[in-house]
Amino acid sequence: MSGVSGLLDHTFMRHALLAALLVGIAAPAVGTYLVQRRQAVMGDGIGHVALTGVALGFLLQTSPVWTAVAVSALGAVGMELIRSRRRAGGDLALALLLYGGMAGGALLISLAPGASTASLTGYLWGSILTVSPADLVAMAVLTVLVAAICIGLRRQLFAVCQDEAFASVTGLPVRALNLLLAVTAAVTVTVSMRVVGLLLVSALMVIPVAAAQRVGRSFAVVQLLAVVVGVLSCVGGTVGSYQLDLPSGPTIVVASMVLLAILAVLAAARPALARSRTGTMARGAVLRPRANRQEPQESR
């Protein structure tokens, strides 16, 4: 373990681990609501739009982080407006964000003085070791904001993501909460881009939630477990990437998938373990009827 404790002697590594911790908290906390609403890949659409924001930052020669926040928030709001107006349009809106964001980023960066698509590589795949103290302060402030929204408005956001028709009749400002969630997701994407990269950011919003679902039975527990899995993946992946000399973003994502696999095996083994312990069929655990998923339909 001397190698691991030695890590903290390096300033850049302390910064990297702190950044990883922040992302590990924020991404799954927001991601739980997106998965709840069956919009698991929305983070990916926002990530691609953020690329245009990063390129705009290079073009204007200002901090790419803030232009990315602004542009991705606009993209997320646009997508939410399309989703809320036309039920079937969400799919197309996502496609527009994905391709428009990529093309916009590549175009703008070619116009930026002294920059090329190579300048974007660190943002596409993450470059956690180059996180500066100024970046860290911005990330910490934004993470506190994201966490406050996700925890403080948990019951409200849960109700809106679960059943909009019901939520509006409890007097909740459904439109405003949906827009808040979209902007929160956009902020999370930009917070995470230095750590895991824009191409993989969505993975951290989704995979920890998928992992937590293997063992959690309630929404509150799944959200909490997802944050735990997210923090373990980010911190573990960062340490692993340093030790094995691998890029941080992909290592973090692979770490989260390993945790998902472990939890899936544990969940699958649970009924079998119960069976061998009791010597009976433990039927309740195995034969729980799953879902009667009725797709919501337009009603008259």
């Binding site: 849960f158 059943d163 019901f166 959690g216 039975r217 799944v222 879902a291 339909q297 009603s299």
Partner: peptide, 13 residues
């Protein structure tokens, strides 16, 4: 609501 979506993408009790 009619045919209310009681289930979501995440388990809830």
């Amino acid at each position: 609501p009619q045919r209310s979506t009681a289930t979501g993408g995440v388990p809830a009790t």
